[in-house]
């Protein structure tokens, strides 16, 4: 049985003369809990953009469940089960929390071209919304506009949008960025409860989250994979200490 959901082979990306992604190989299994770490500017977000199709690679290939998606549009990749969250919140600011999540639910149910039948009278949609609001503990702010929401809660909506898509692979770009300490604890808790068969890549600078969550870690530096291993291997790795952990401690 082949358990690989996502496979990246020889991925390369340069912006002009600047090579930001260099020969990256990477494999993700069903239910994987993978962390991607590396100093600022290591090329983590760029890698996510390549995987999700926001950027086209200079060379290399990306496979989702065995299918070569290297040339697919971002939309198509999403509908095949690839979802992400954004390092910088990317939401619908003039809409309410429930409307934001509903957009993802609508996309997932493929009813985005239904011209009639009020959205808030569709039972399937409402049931799904109630479930997601419960999971993310957002019921209390369901009717708040995103622009009136506390930052920590926006981060949760960001996560809710991605999960509403019922993806096979979920990529979280610094989900804890800018969260106060107590909120990042809650986030860890949420991450632990993600569906068991969902393959997750999390990019994070918060080492507590990384080591609490990942069963495998890839360290990226200057665009290439520095090393890959289990959390304890990474913790013990001298190179990693040097380029990443050491630097993080100095911050």
């Amino acid at each position: 049985m082949n358990d690989t959901v996502l496979e990246i082979v020889g991925l390369h990306k340069s912006f002009g003369a600047l090579a930001v992604t260099r020969n990256i190989n990477f494999r993700l299994e069903i239910g994987a809990r993978h962390a991607l770490i590396g100093p600022n500017g290591a090329g983590k977000t760029t890698l996510v953009n390549l995987i999700t199709g926001a950027l086209a690679p200079s060379s290399g290939s990306i496979r989702l469940e065995g299918r070569d998606i290297t040339r697919y549009s971002p939309q198509r990749r999403v509908s095949l089960g690839l979802a992400r969250t954004f390092q910088i919140n990317s939401l619908f600011p003039s809409m309410t929390v429930v409307e934001n999540i509903a957009l993802a639910v609508v996309a997932n149910m493929h009813i985005d071209a239904k011209l009639w039948g009020a959205l808030n009278r569709r039972k399937q949609v409402l049931i799904e919304l109630e479930r997601l609001l419960d999971v993310f503990n957002l019921s209390g702010s369901a009717c708040q506009l995103i622009s009136n929401l506390a930052y920590g809660q926006r981060r949760l909506v960001e996560l809710a949008l991605a999960l509403a898509l019922k993806p096979k692979v979920l990529i979280l770009d610094e989900p804890a960025a800018g969260l106060p300490k107590e909120d990042s604890g809650k986030l860890s808790e949420l991450l632990r409860r993600l569906p068991a068969d969902l393959a997750v890549i999390v990019i994070e600078h918060d080492m507590q989250i990384v080591f609490g969550f990942a069963d495998r870690i890839t360290v990226l530096a200057e665009g290439s994979v520095l090393t890959q291993g289990t959390p304890s291997e990474i913790r013990a790795d001298a190179k990693v200490r040097e380029v990443y952990l050491g630097q993080a401690r100095n911050d």
């Binding site: 926001a54 985005d112 959205l119």
Partner: peptide, 23 residues
């Protein structure tokens, strides 16, 4: 008031994100 109507507002607010929802 239809799903399409909400999708339009989503596009107005943030078309990039709407694409990344697969629309």
């Amino acid at each position: 008031n239809s799903p399409f109507g909400y999708v339009l507002r989503g596009i107005r607010d943030n078309d990039q994100r709407m694409r990344m929802l697969g629309v």
